[in-house]
């Protein structure tokens, strides 16, 4: 089975992605992660204005049979969360790199452990 791994992002070993925009970065989980979890039924995210720290937990994603912590690829302040996930957690399964995004962060600092798309592909193969 092959999983989508967009080249324009960076990744954490724990299967989160970060997309660096101009002023802010967007964070979510990978196609591989959503597939491992199965049907996502709930996503717990921080509030806007909260701080996140690179490498530390920022939330929880739940499927029927598993619960996973979400780790932040960046440090900074949360300036947006994907409210749609509250009523439609299935977006994480359907479009993990797009409509299934989780956080928008004003970045102070990035994790030292970010992987390139190629490095992440190696990890999940």
């Amino acid at each position: 089975m092959s999983f989508d791994v967009p080249d324009d992002r960076n990744y954490l070993e724990s299967h989160e992605w970060v997309d660096h925009g101009d002023a802010t970065a967007t964070v979510g989980i990978t196609d591989f992660a959503q597939d491992e979890l199965g049907d996502v039924v709930f996503v717990e995210l921080p509030d806007e204005g909260d701080d996140v720290t690179a490498g530390e937990e920022f939330g929880v994603v739940e499927s029927i049979k598993a619960v996973s912590d979400l780790y932040s690829p960046v440090s900074g302040t949360v300036v947006g969360i994907n409210d749609a996930l509250h009523d439609q957690p299935e977006l994480v399964n359907e479009d993990p790199f797009g409509e299934g995004w989780m956080l928008e962060v004003e970045v102070d600092e990035e994790s030292d452990d970010l992987l390139s798309a190629d490095e992440y592909r190696d990890q999940i193969e």
């Binding site: 499927s63 029927i64 049979k65 598993a66």
Partner: peptide
């Protein structure tokens, strides 16, 4: 919502 329960979430 069994993910709340001990057999899945253990110490949490």
């Amino acid at each position: 919502l069994q993910t709340r329960e001990q057999h899945i979430r253990r110490e949490r």
